[in-house]
């Protein structure tokens, strides 16, 4: 049964890349966004920590 599922009626070469690309894009967008936010917040903490943050 598993083989049939993976084979996708002979269209495995099209269905799986489509879904895998979707997953890849979702992961790439979310990871890059979160990592960017963390890095910037760390940088802000240093910048504001170093001096008294005004208004």
């Amino acid at each position: 049964m598993m083989a049939a599922f993976l084979d996708m009626g002979g269209y495995a070469a099209f269905v799986w890349p489509a879904w895998l690309l979707s997953a890849a894009i979702l992961v790439a967008v979310s990871v890059s966004s979160v990592r960017r936010l963390r890095a910037l917040e760390r940088e802000l903490a240093e910048a504001e920590g170093g001096r008294d943050p005004h208004s």
Binding site: M8, F14, V15
Partner: peptide, 11 residues
């Protein structure tokens, strides 16, 4: 379209 219709669910 057979199984290729599943692409529609992301496209």
């Amino acid at each position: 379209q057979g199984e290729t219709v599943r692409i529609m669910y992301v496209h």
